[in-house]
């Protein structure tokens, strides 16, 4: 069994309104050093067999929306 971690993030050029709200809240809590927050998603897949091309296909077909999101694939140790 292989565990694969897919991280989906908004494209850097896009405004992350939720991240902006969280950044504002952190600053209000006294964490003045926070200049930006981006929120993404972690999707952990348990796979019987690992084939990177197939995981990439899963991302392209469903897990990420290429119009607004980027993704990275990592195999967990």
């Amino acid at each position: 069994m292989t565990t694969v971690r897919v991280t989906v993030t908004l494209k850097p050029s896009l405004l992350d309104s939720a991240g902006r709200t969280v950044a504002g809240s952190l600053v209000k809590l006294g964490f003045d050093e926070v200049k930006d927050v981006r929120i993404g998603k972690v999707i952990r897949l348990q796979l019987e067999t690992y084939d990177e091309a197939r995981v990439r296909a899963m991302c392209d077909k469903l897990l990420a929306n290429p119009v607004i999101e980027d993704y990275t694939i990592e195999v967990e140790p």
Binding site: L14, L15, S17, A18, T21, N65, V67, I68
Partner: peptide
């Protein structure tokens, strides 16, 4: 329709949250 690719673009969280 956007997710299906029948229309272009995407719908994101309202700016106001």
């Amino acid at each position: 329709l956007c997710e299906a690719g029948l229309l272009p673009g995407a719908l994101m969280r309202n700016l106001s949250e």
